[in-house]
Nucleic acid binder design. Structure first.
Lengths: 232, 232
DNA sequence: GGCTTTCGTTGATGAATCGCAAATAAATCC
DNA sequence: GGATTTATTTGCGATTCATCAACGAAAGCC
């Protein structure tokens, strides 16, 4: 793929950057196509590159020493990922798996420090990126610690519909294949419980499901369920 | 208190910094003494300052819309805190409460951007600080999602003993007043459950308790409990 | 020193949700 | 198109843990 400034300027990282700086960054980048199901990098592997997702979706997961898996986050177009250096790590802390056909820009990790110091905008973006992830992580901790499963699932589904939703009829379709197991790993529960909850919601007309599919039919209803202490 | 380079150089933030830069930073700083029980800042208040803890301990907590409280983290000497600007926030996301007599350096938040851009070492420290917090947050998410309560409490207590432990006899004393409720808010459970768990541990000689006191008597035993899938 | 407040312990009960098992259904592979 | 794999649904029993309740003990306050 040809790397073109006009093509990438819509992404937050580049939006505020001077054209010269963008060109400098792009000149070191390689674009890479990733097929659904492929891993961009694996947990524990030496961190050789950092990335910017141009389109498609990835999920970043970790496996615990006991072999259980959790989904750390979804990566959406425009997101930096694999920036292990910013966390002062030499290996990737998680595995990045492509869930829908993606294209990413790749830079060798050696360039990270250099680019950071030469490019204040990149440094600022990296800092805010990580800052936002930290806040999301705290939100998640708060939810897992204090809310019961149904509300956690509601929050997770709403978040998905905001970050990766496409309008469909009166509702919002989650724009990539997602399993009950995925949702379970995002909310700290089991696929069985997620399945039961979604079934119940489907009965109430809040969502409609399908294999690896999810359509939120009643966003307001789900929000009420997520926010309100107890529904009447 | 007189601000002196030799006094602060032991802290990670200043360790790698040139003397001139340290002086420049200190020249804008005010040191502040905080009594146990006082709040340095409160959740939702406009973020007017950022801080470096010189000594003492703080706990940062958040209250949920439903009024439940969680402890986001403990602040130890040498830690930056209240750096809302780095998270692109104009208010403090949590409340910082002093648990043992503390001294902190304070800078007006307006200086943040300026100091960051003039001082690459501060930028780097801020980035790694937040990066480490992010990793801790992910660890916590993993634990709450996949582990049962007793092991989460074990991990939390071990972490406390590492970060704020003082050798005492064969064991490690947590060096500040801590309640069962605090531990519950760090692990996403209730004070009742924590109390039961600590009582059981005390019976097995792993810890010994007391009002707002905690002594880990058998670090290795606790570690085994925290790590192993199931004990024999 | 007595009173009040905060903190801790422990038992009993029940609800949330996990784990297991078995059946169904959709997609994929030759 | 049948066989296989991967997802999903659902019932039921087991278990963990929160909740309610009551009491005991330590620390702070006049």
């Amino acid at each position: 793929m040809k790397l073109d400034i006009s093509l990438v300027k819509k992404f937050a990282l580049f939006a505020e950057m001077a054209d010269g700086d963008i060109e400098a960054m792009l000149s070191h980048a390689v674009s890479r196509r990733i097929a659904a199901g492929d891993a961009v990098f694996e947990q524990g592997a030496p961190a050789t590159h950092f990335f910017l997702l141009l389109n498609g979706r990835l999920k970043v997961s970790q496996v615990t020493p006991q072999g259980q898996q959790i989904i750390v986050r979804m990566v959406n177009p425009g997101d930096l990922f694999g920036i292990a250096k910013a966390l002062q790590r030499s290996d990737y802390p998680g595995t990045a798996l492509c869930v829908s056909e993606a294209v990413a820009l790749c830079w060798p990790m050696e360039l990270w420090s250099q680019m950071i110091s030469q490019n204040p905008q990149l440094a600022a973006t990296a800092l805010t990126t990580i800052g936002q992830r930290l806040q999301e992580a705290h939100t998640r901790i708060r939810e897992i610690s204090t809310e019961e499963v149904e509300r956690r699932v509601a929050h997770a589904v709403l978040r998905l519909s905001e970050q990766a939703g496409r309008a469909e009829g009166a509702g919002v379709r989650i724009d990539f294949p997602i399993t009950r197991q995925d949702i379970a790993e995002m909310t700290g529960t089991t696929l069985h419980t997620v399945s039961r909850i979604l079934s119940a919601w489907e009965g109430r007309g809040l969502v409609s499901g399908g294999r690896q599919k999810l359509l939120v039919r009643d966003v307001a209803g789900l929000k009420a369920l997520a926010e309100n202490e107890k529904m009447g």
